[in-house]
Design a protein around this nucleic acid. Sequence first.
DNA 1: CTGAAAGCGCTAACAC
DNA 2: GTGTTAGCGCTTTCAG
Lengths: 335, 335
Amino acid sequence: MRVTIKQIASKLGVNPSTVSRALSGKSGVSDRLREKIVREALKMGYFPDMTAMGLRKGHTKVIGVLIPDISNPFFAQAVRGMEKIFYPMGYQLILCSTEENSEREAANLRMLVSQRVEGLLSAPVDSGGNSVIYRKIHAEGIPIVFFDRLIPDLKLSSVITDNEQGIRDLMEYLHRRGHRKLGIINLRGRSFTGKVRLRSAIETAEKLGIEIRQEWIKDGNSTQSEAYEATVQMLSLESKPTAIIVNNNLMMLGTMKALRDLKINVPKDVSLVGFDDSYWNQIFDPPISCIAQDPEQMGLIAATMLLDAIFHHAKPVQTVLKAHFIERESVSVIS
Amino acid sequence: MRVTIKQIASKLGVNPSTVSRALSGKSGVSDRLREKIVREALKMGYFPDMTAMGLRKGHTKVIGVLIPDISNPFFAQAVRGMEKIFYPMGYQLILCSTEENSEREAANLRMLVSQRVEGLLSAPVDSGGNSVIYRKIHAEGIPIVFFDRLIPDLKLSSVITDNEQGIRDLMEYLHRRGHRKLGIINLRGRSFTGKVRLRSAIETAEKLGIEIRQEWIKDGNSTQSEAYEATVQMLSLESKPTAIIVNNNLMMLGTMKALRDLKINVPKDVSLVGFDDSYWNQIFDPPISCIAQDPEQMGLIAATMLLDAIFHHAKPVQTVLKAHFIERESVSVIS
DNA sequence: CTGAAAGCGCTAACAC
DNA sequence: GTGTTAGCGCTTTCAG
């Protein structure tokens, strides 16, 4: 059985509360006794019981993290950034993968509250169908910070990338290189980032005089396989765009594979740029120019904001991060 | 403030224990009263308090997971497999990234026990320096399953890949294609998988009559950047191997980049095979032949074994998974 | 079928 | 500087 503070106490013939004081470094215990207690605790293999401490003190030192897909390096790196903040503070992260499913998200959210997490870091599921639960949790006094995505009708804290700016940078670059016909492999149409990036592309196209035909906008559903299909379809069209924007890292893999299978040369036959910079962009032949976000930084900032909310009851803040363009060799010059 | 069972009880003029019974689906409450209680709980926004339940019942429905690096897709996918088992059972995973650091591992381990996790899934830090703590935790009655790696002197449950078989398959393939001079970009030399794979390569080389000179064995330290350096060094040697084995997915990225920068053609100038199959192997030019593990499956099996240990007190089991060879186009035929 | 009471492991307020 | 007591929110006997 587990060693408790009580057992240590009775073994040493002192009171449990004295053991508690000694072990948690509180004042009010003589140095000699404290040392004796600490030694005995070590010898008996005592592990403090956080659930009991949590119950008593009202805080658990646990943070809940919700991400849609852990095997996407983007989110994995974001979590890494959060770890960097929370680990040194002795906080634990409970990580939940929602698999882009509202019901799972709701279930996870309920669980997390039940676990008495002190705060929540979430990249909410695209449908945004759980705003009621989020609101309720917020009302309970549990701070929430959204990252990468947000639910527009909730005025909570968030850290997202400046998607509009990113798309504009990408398109201005293509425009400078002479491209006037643009195709888009978009994220799931209903998703927050998908909507924002597409709208921004259409607006920018109008401004710059770039053509984006309806048939050049394909929904890659955020997955590798569907991006593959979408790319194949787009490039079997009678009249094709001269350049393609792929709207996230995973879909870029699908598009790359399609291009290879179709033996279409980049950038000679078609130019390619991406939103997100993952490992693979720079080892593709040719290396892919793209808009790079910094997910680790995003996680770090989200975590910092959450901490601020937990300790200083900071008011909700909306943070927008700049993404930056990385030029490589995937875009031709059209004269 | 948080809604408690007591508040619901006093609101309805019944006893807390009745509310507890009603809410947890226990028998001994009339249907009418139960319905009334459930409705009120919902209305008041009641979330059960798992820490209190855990304290009372002695189990927390939380599993601790230790991985060395969350941004490595291999481990991310393993976690995904674990999620698949535990999510439907209402268990939560606390994920800790040890960053290949023994002290962090020890700290995380202590924390996890303090959180009263019901079981532990761990890919232990390479040095194996925490066997004492693992042993202690096991002695506490908390089941442990190692995955991907293990600590040889601990006879606990584990799921690992048949690394020897993998290396043999790779080398027999190279041998059939006429290769007799082999270079290796190895994992961190002290690591479990690094040691096993290297030893296996040397043994197999002897058996098959393949030459592996000392200078053709480079330590890539499991990272992209050091694998880059290692590759550059190996290929600037006077006499080079005709084929290279890269011993994990992240290092493959470094090697690929080095090869591109050096303008060395694969497989014409040098052949290339890898241990692990990540996203990028198939979009490189040429696609890379490799030994593929199935990390998600590994996570799934580890989770299943842990469950077995938790519920049926199953004895420690050592599981070894077969890896399978995927032929692509990165190896030339030498006649 | 429902209520009363005890207790999980810990800490904090109050005595002495 | 140390002991006593109460209670965090819940479940589980045991009564009635």
